[in-house]
Amino acid sequence: MRRLFAAAIVRELRLALRHAGDSLAAVLFFALAAALFPLALGPGPALLARMATGTVWVLALLAALLPLERLYGADHEDGGLDELLAAGLPAPAIAAAKMLTHWLACGVPVIAASVPVQVMLGAAPTPVGLAALALGTLCLSLIGGVAACVSLGARRGTLLLPLLALPLATAPLIFGAAAADAARLGLDATSDLALLAAFLCAALPVCPLAAGLALREG
């Protein structure tokens, strides 16, 4: 079972590497959209620095939605999902492998890209802020996985994804952005970080189970 799970993760990562354009597109979207904010809000450094953390968090949330469609939908369409299920891997494990891949292929590059983006917006990134973003993107990968599995095979599936995933992601967004902002201002971010971690701990078992249920029922 463990070997099957490892093999599934390796398979997902290989697929993600082969279609590197998808993850790259998400990171590109992240950087590009961040560059639009100064254009719309004006180049005043005070306002930009104030908005930098929130901008990065919202854009990370939106960027996480982009690769979901291919990561889950392609396997659903070509029957790969049925093969994986037939191989004896439990559906929640398949979902967990896909969520982990989503984080590695999309979350980690976005975290890396957030460093130059924050510098350009005039807010030096803090270690606590980056840690919060790491926890937050992991939450987003879990929630996005549930949304993607639930809407597999739906008409207008791409349009559905934001409507399903974004409301569920409210809490990590609030706690994560609060923690990162507190760290930027030199305040104590422990409580917000702890709440974010608590949300992650709750989502860690719930999301793969729910997504796996949706995969099996679909």
């Binding site: 639930v150 809407s151 597999l152 739906a154 029922e217």
Partner: peptide
Amino acid sequence: GHVVLVRSFDDPARGARSAAILALVGVLD
């Protein structure tokens, strides 16, 4: 989200199951 999801499948039973899972996840909210 529930209203849209439950109506966006060609097979109504599949829509009901997906929406049921969504509602159970959402109730944690």
